[in-house]
Design a protein around this nucleic acid. Structure first.
Lengths: 109, 109
DNA sequence: TCTCGGTACTGCGTGATACCGAGTACTACT
DNA sequence: AGTAGTACTCGGTATCACGCAGTACCGAGA
């Protein structure tokens, strides 16, 4: 259908991951599946893991390792205060951007 | 207000420039001013020119050089057929992405 | 037992993009 | 002459999504 959202996802995919983590404590593999079923069909695991490592490096999440019945142990991610702030900034930016784009499209003066 | 849209603009700014050119034949400096007044306040000339050179390289625009009364000659850009197609694809991608994001935000199942 | 597929994470490298900065050059006004 | 506004070019940088190879754990079927 719509091919190659790659470039357009830059800067937004991380926010999507933050939002998913904000809804419930979860782990990389599940986040990828969630994104896929939400319509971000081409997002692959490697991408999500790089985002998660970045979030951890930037101190936006709290990480807990727990064993799994289905395979290797899972790293569960939850937002901390800094993460919730960043999520708020993300939605503010998204609202700002999308309103400008829509205005532009309407012939926008 | 909203700082650093930089990453979020990736993949969308080029589409915005295409839309502006599609509305009327215009040139780089004017496109920058137009973007600024539309709310893309931090977009600078260098960025727009790199986009315009890319559009030209990719064969999406027709370029006409014309003298100016106010300074150096201007390079006017107009969309060709390929450019109009690309613009259509851009809006399709934008619609797709923004609908998914909004769905995600609504808690979206 | 051995392989295979599904689950789960890591780490290095690539390509595309917006942005930065310095440079060039033309016009008009003081 | 000097400055400000207009107008474009080009080399370099940082960041990001993504590709890919590798590691590792588990359960089911041949």
């Amino acid at each position: 259908m719509v091919d190659d959202l790659r470039e357009m996802l830059k800067g937004t995919l991380e926010g999507c991951v933050l939002e998913i983590i904000g809804n419930e404590e979860t782990y990389g593999y599940a986040i990828t599946r969630r994104l896929n079923e939400l319509g971000f069909a081409d997002v692959i695991e490697g991408t999500v893991y790089t985002i998660l490592l970045r979030l951890e490096k930037n101190g936006l999440v709290q990480v807990t390792k727990r064993p799994s019945e289905m395979g290797p142990p899972r790293k569960f991610y939850a937002l901390n205060d800094a993460g919730r702030e960043e999520l708020g900034r993300f939605w503010a930016k998204w609202e700002y951007l999308s309103s400008r784009i829509d205005k532009l499209r309407e012939g926008g003066r």
